[in-house]
Computed example of a mutant assay.
Amino acid sequence: MNAWGASAASLVGLVVLGAVGSLSAVALGLPVPLLIGPAILTTLASLMGLPLQFPHHLRNFIFLLAGIAIGATVSPDSVAALVRWPLAFALLGVAVLLMVILGQRLMVVLMPTDRRSGLLAAAPGHLSYVIALGEDLGLATRGVAVVQSIRLLALTLLVPFAVALAGIETGIGLNNAPVIHEMTLLQTTLCIAAALALAPVLMRTPVPAPMLLAGMIIGAAVRLSGLVPGGLSHWIAFPVLAAIGTLIGTRFAGVTLAELRRSALAGLAGTTLAAALAVVAAWFAAGIVEMPMLHVLVAFSPGGLETMAVIGAAIGANPGFVAAAHVARLLFLSVLIPVLIRRTQEPLPASR
């Protein structure tokens, strides 16, 4: 089979896994089933050796659509929390610093690995950045990637279950916030076009997840301006959520069971440490921003920006706060990781 045929077969497989996983999770009554079901089923398929690969351009388009859906849930009332964010961000910064410093020591003991690899494995986010930096440093990044993937999957699964145990209804889609109406096809097309125009501008900046953020900015702008009455149609939002779930599962493609066993303990221990610190910081920050503690926890959780933003939208959290907190965490890591790398007495490679 040629490359095109293999890619097409992989895409068909992802569609089937996403559909079966979604329907199964809905039938079982799992929280955020359109995200959880595909994530679990695709992870299992990847570990079984199925050659699953999510097309890069499709991934970017999915993120853009998710951003529009999330941004369209922003209301004028949610913007009022802006004046309280600086103190919350300070708490988040302290939590991230502790996640990295304590997590590095944990990784060195449990993986075991050198201090630089341990630092990259402990980073609570910014997977593409830490992997690229590890490659430049000549480190063995496979273990780092597996540990980071375990963190992403664990938080994707645990946060919705924690929300469900707290008695908060999550529903199944991206439009669970108080959005009564849905965009027309023309409005949706215009939003997509505007987001596609904005995305290249954001790509020239150090802002992470530019496709998602471009969609969020456009979605929030048209909702706050009154140009559109609500969010994306469920016929679009639901498949987008399932696609994000399958994308998470494909991160385990090519990982052997032996590699998984070696890194599982370190990954779960690091995730537990980071999650505990996030809980403490969220508990203090909830009173500052005057939001439910679980809403702040989704914003402070060291999971993927796209995934946590989707979960935040599903539980009705302030989408602007969730996105801003995750962007702040990733930007902080962009500065913190090189500084800590230098403290290991190992020179950083020249920029490429």
Rank of each mutant, 00 (worst) to 15 (best):
L137G: 00
I337A: 04
I218E: 02
I341M: 15
L102T: 06
R251I: 04
G219R: 08
M216A: 14
L50D: 06
C191G: 05
A194T: 12
A194F: 04
S233G: 11
R84G: 03
I217F: 14
A274C: 05
V12P: 06
V100S: 07
L273Q: 05
A9V: 14
N175A: 13
I248K: 07
R223G: 10
P210G: 07
T256M: 05
T205I: 00
I248P: 09
A199I: 11
T188E: 07
G287V: 11
M111S: 10
G29M: 01
M211F: 12
T272A: 15
L202Y: 13
V179F: 08
I244R: 01
A328W: 08
L119H: 03
S263M: 10
V108Q: 13
P33N: 01
I172S: 15
V146Q: 02
V26L: 15
A314I: 08
A177Q: 10
M99P: 01
L260T: 01
M211W: 13
A278L: 03
A132S: 02
L153W: 08
L34S: 02
D77C: 00
A166D: 09
L273M: 04
G125T: 05
R59D: 04
T256Y: 13
S351W: 10
T188W: 05
A140F: 08
A177T: 02
M183Y: 13
A140T: 12
V289G: 12
F89G: 09
D114E: 11
E135V: 13
V296R: 06
A8R: 15
A45E: 13
A243S: 10
T141E: 00
F89A: 12
G226W: 07
M99G: 00
A328G: 02
L35W: 05
I217H: 08
I192L: 12
R329K: 05
T156N: 10
Q148H: 14
I218M: 08
S128I: 14
I40P: 13
G93K: 03
V280D: 08
R329Q: 11
G71N: 01
S351K: 13
A122T: 03
S78W: 11
A242L: 10
S117W: 03
V255N: 03
A197P: 03
S22D: 07
W283F: 11
A264M: 09
N60Q: 15
G21R: 00
L41Y: 08
D136T: 02
A253N: 09
P160W: 11
P292R: 07
R223V: 10
G303S: 09
G21I: 06
H234F: 09
V109L: 12
N318G: 06
L28R: 06
